[in-house]
């Protein structure tokens, strides 16, 4: 396969996300301009200019009309996808580490960092009529998080629950009606860098610095599968059509200069969903992979790395013909 290299960022990619149909690919990096690309030919549609710090998290609603980005400049911004103009701006006390639209995109959730004397907090906001005034509007719900900070965030079924991954490896389900913890599990020993839902949202996969990715039931946080590697895992995604998961990671960014690309293991690694066995690798990045995403049609996937590149890979026929021996 001939990957498309998207070089619109000057610094390390922090997150990439496809929209629901998969025709657009959004990317954010530690420079302050999230980008949006046509996933088919790698053409850049535009950049969202306005942030003043590293953009940590992005999300797009399911109609691809609005785009959400949280950054290290203590703001969460809502953008118009078509024009790239900001719609709303919410100032927070500390940097925004995770943000997500709910499935219906009536609400959005974001979590702030535990920093500068402020506690980590989860906010639920109403984004139905987002405009300039959203910065002043009160959030629907504000959950202070005692203990370990939230490092990743997902919406549960029917927009009634929220799943959060924490710095110490815990995963918590929150009931949004009451704002209380429903359940907590601690299967990881280190920070959960990324969580991604499977296509039907019955399962989600976590990527942790403890060198594993784990598959959980999104209803009751039951640990289903564990995918072991020998490097920190920064991101993991489940294929929407096949029983495959892709893991991206590698040596810690701070150790990379002392590691050659060959031993750094900066490959995307493909595991079988059920048998937890690695069956394929794709090389390419010159640094650890920070974010991976499957195209919603499952025929291509993208990875964004510490090297600042986003690579769109369209699978060869051999990938679909590959049968897993069991």
């Amino acid at each position: 396969m001939k990957p498309l290299l998207l070089h619109g960022h000057e610094r390390a990619i922090t997150q990439i996300k496809y929209n629901r149909e998969g025709d657009l690919l959004f990317s954010s990096s530690k420079d302050n301009k999230p980008n949006v690309w046509y996933s088919l030919n790698g053409e850049r549609l535009g950049t969202f200019n306005g942030h003043q710090g590293a953009v940590w998290c992005i999300d797009v609603d399911w109609t691809t009309t609005r785009f959400l980005s949280g950054a290290g400049d203590n703001t969460l911004k809502i953008w118009d996808c078509e024009t790239g103009k900001p719609i709303g701006n919410i100032t927070t006390n500390s940097s925004v580490r995770a943000c997500n639209f709910s499935y219906s995109a009536n609400m959005a959730a974001y979590a702030t960092d535990k920093a500068m004397g402020h506690q980590c907090e989860i906010f639920i906001i109403d984004v139905r009529n987002a405009d300039d005034s959203i910065g002043q509007a009160d959030p629907i719900l504000r959950i202070p998080v005692n203990g370990s900070r939230v490092s990743s965030l997902l919406w549960g079924a029917l927009d009634e629950t929220l799943l959060t991954g924490h710095e110490n490896g815990e995963i918590t389900i929150w009931d949004l009606k009451t704002g209380k913890k429903l359940q907590t599990t601690k299967e990881h020993d280190n920070i959960i860098n990324d969580m991604q839902m499977s296509k039907d949202c019955t399962m989600f996969i976590t990527a942790s610095k403890d060198h594993t990715a784990k598959l959980f039931d999104s209803e009751n946080l039951m640990l289903l599968k564990t995918y072991k590697t020998e490097r920190p895992v920064n991101s993991a995604a489940v294929s929407p059509i096949l029983e495959h998961v892709v893991l991206g990671g590698g040596q810690d960014a701070m150790d990379v200069t002392t590691t050659s690309a060959r031993v750094g293991k900066f490959d995307s690694r493909f595991f079988h969903l059920v048998f937890e066995e690695e069956f394929g690798r794709v090389k390419g990045h010159f640094g650890p992979i920070n974010s991976v995403a499957f195209h919603p049609d499952g025929k291509s996937y993208s990875s964004g790395g510490e090297d600042g590149y986003v690579r769109i890979h369209t699978f060869d026929s051999s990938y679909f013909e590959y049968g897993f021996d069991y």
């Binding site: 396969m1 001939k2 990957p3 498309l4 290299l5 998207l6 070089h7 619109g8 690309w37 030919n41 790698g42 053409e43 850049r44 493909f270 066995e277 690695e278 069956f279 394929g280 690798r281 794709v282 090389k283 390419g284 690579r311 890979h313 699978f315 060869d316 051999s318 990938y319 590959y322 021996d325």
Partner: peptide, 14 residues
């Protein structure tokens, strides 16, 4: 901004 990369292949490992 958009570069066509060199051919890469999935290395199948068992």
């Amino acid at each position: 901004t958009t570069i066509v990369g060199e051919d890469v292949y999935m290395q199948y490992v068992t």
